[in-house]
Design a protein around this nucleic acid. Structure first.
Length: 257
DNA sequence: GTTCTAGAAC
DNA sequence: GTTCTAGAAC
């Protein structure tokens, strides 16, 4: 069912010929498909279609695209970004319909993808899925480890010095990224280290449950008197006391190797 | 990328 | 004895 070039065959075909179980949507330049082995509650792939001046070879991977014409590379990634924005919006709507709240969505490329043909991952920030089975799966999507190259970071390379741009390309090699996949299992919410996959999965589920509870907690009532600094709280259950969670940390751009 | 499974870890 | 990881796949 899935060989390592299956994505290229999807990108090559007329989108209309793809079954609805695979194709989520299409645009002039891309197709969006359901990830066959979703690692989060929502998980899609956006692939540039092989057409016009673009060749399968150019679109083989991020480095192959970036090593070619820079303006062409930029327009390919911009078009992917545009579709990613629309897909994110649809995911958010379905989050509300199915779960009653919204949580983060990540968009990015793998530093070293195992499947050929450029593909952007668009996935909900939970990593709660039956298919999330091993350390390699987990670390490849961990938002801070650096294996997952956030779309906005990749886009920013185009605005940097050209020496920086070429350095980023040069660094996109397996020897820089493979070691990341072997790093310890650290929760992406709170950084705590887990002994093994089963305990990590149980912990991630708890973290997600916590997000849900937090999102669904009734909003605290507004104070009406500007001077009323009194700490008197009506109920101990509402969240006015919760100062800041251990999970909250300033968002930093993912480190590059 | 997955599946399968030997043997390490507990 | 069972759980879990990690390397081979002809």
């Amino acid at each position: 069912m899935s060989n390592l070039t299956i994505l290229r065959t999807y990108a090559q075909k007329a989108p209309e010929t793809l079954p609805p179980s695979i194709l989520f949507k299409q645009s002039a330049k891309n197709i969006t498909i359901f990830d066959g082995y979703p690692k989060s509650i929502f998980h899609f792939l956006i692939l540039p279609r092989i057409q016009e001046p673009l060749t399968a070879d150019t679109l083989r991977s991020l480095p192959s695209l970036l090593k070619g014409d820079k303006e062409q590379a930029k327009s390919v990634i911009d078009a992917i970004a545009e579709d990613a924005k629309a897909v994110k919006k649809e995911i958010q709507e379905e989050m509300v319909e199915r779960y009653g709240f919204k949580w983060d969505i990540w968009t990015g490329f793998h530093g070293v993808p195992s499947m050929e043909h450029l593909h952007l991952h668009v996935l909900s920030a939970d990593l709660c899925s039956e298919r999330m089975k091993n350390k390699k799966h987990y670390n490849s999507f961990h938002p801070k480890l650096g294996f997952f190259l956030h779309l906005n970071d990749v886009l920013s390379w185009f605005d940097a010095e050209s020496s920086y741009f070429s350095n980023q390309i040069k660094n996109l090699k397996p020897s820089n990224y493979e070691p990341i996949l072997k790093e310890p299992l650290a929760c992406f919410h709170c950084r705590s280290e887990m002994k093994n996959i089963p305990s990590l999965k149980a912990h991630l589920q708890e973290e997600w449950d916590k997000l849900e509870r937090r999102a669904k907690r009734p909003a605290p009532r507004k104070r009406k008197a500007p001077n009323a600094e009194s700490q008197a709280d009506n109920t101990e259950a509402t969240g006015s006391k919760r100062a800041k969670s251990e999970a909250e940390e300033p968002e930093t751009a993912s480190g590059t190797i």
